[in-house]
């Protein structure tokens, strides 16, 4: 494997966003890119990252390899990069280590680190292609604020999507609260748009603890996409350049 990423910062942000959910995981490398899929310890949430080969330049992966990496270790090494550094990831066939090289944009400094790999026996889950009943795009900072605000009142949030808009509501010991968003287009600042694409009304309840955790990815993308259908996990997607993505799935609460 040899994969050069223009922004070391991108991988750093991804790792920062997921490392409280998952600790050790395989980075599956093949000629289409670098993918990661892992469940959190409680098996309630699933992280799925795809960095497509087009996100790298150049990208070369001659044989499929799984790089088992402890994310705390990876985070420590990625913190050694400067914010504008270019990152090249390298691994041999049947590797013991993954090699990370940081170059400063003006190329005067080159730093190099090896991280020991681990054998991780990870269960891979098949995620069915789903036509969701509601697809909501909204500013990622807005979603983060809603989740944090409602978590002050309750441990779970009901998300209801109708023709009227999307309503986030909660009920707790001190009282209740809700935030409703309607479709909204801002021509000057499209990152502030709220887009609601609905084929059928949806109402589901989710644990806010996980949603707040997912929102650590807000720095990766100005917009977040929420996809919901009744009785299936919520998909929270942060889109990255070149069709790469960071996705989180969260099982709904049941029997309300």
């Amino acid at each position: 494997l040899e994969a050069r990423l223009e922004q070391a910062n991108l991988l750093k942000k991804v790792v920062d966003a997921i490392k409280d959910l998952v600790q050790d995981c395989n980075f599956d490398c093949n000629d289409s890119g670098i993918a990661l899929q892992a469940m959190d310890n409680s098996h309630v949430a699933l992280v799925s990252m795809m960095l497509k080969s087009e996100s790298f330049s150049p990208f070369r992966c001659d044989r499929n390899i799984a790089l088992g990496i402890n994310l705390t270790s990876l985070q420590k090494v990625l913190r050694c990069a400067n914010s504008e550094d270019i990152l090249t990831l390298k691994a041999e066939d049947a590797p013991d280590v993954v090699n990370l090289v940081f170059e400063s944009a003006d190329s005067d400094r080159l730093s190099e680190y090896d991280i020991k790999l681990m054998d991780i026996d990870q269960e891979h889950l098949g995620i069915p292609e789903t036509e969701y009943a509601a697809n909501i795009s909204m500013p990622s900072a807005e979603f983060q604020k809603i989740c944090r605000d409602l978590m002050a009142l309750s441990e779970s949030v009901a998300i209801e999507c109708t023709k009227e808009g999307v309503k986030f509501s909660c009920n707790g010991d001190i009282g209740s609260g809700s935030v409703t968003l309607r479709s909204h287009t801002n021509v000057d600042k499209p990152e502030n748009n709220v887009e609601i694409d609905l084929t059928e009304p949806v109402a589901l309840t989710f644990s806010l603890k996980y949603l707040v955790n997912f929102c650590k990815a807000s720095g990766l993308s100005g917009q977040v996409k929420l996809c919901l259908s009744n009785e299936v996990p919520l998909l929270v997607e942060y889109g990255l350049a070149s069709n790469s993505y960071l996705r989180f799935y969260l099982a709904p609460k049941i029997g309300d």
């Binding site: 469940m39 409680s42 098996h43 309630v44 949430a45 699933l46 269960e123 891979h124 889950l125 098949g126 995620i127 069915p128 779970s156 309840t205 644990s207 299936v232 996990p233 799935y249 969260l250 099982a251 709904p252 609460k253 049941i254 029997g255 309300d256």
Partner: peptide, 14 residues
């Protein structure tokens, strides 16, 4: 209170 189900009841191994 609603209960929390696991993700594996939705996504199968494989």
């Amino acid at each position: 209170k609603p209960g929390q189900g696991g993700i594996m009841s939705f996504f199968k191994k494989g």
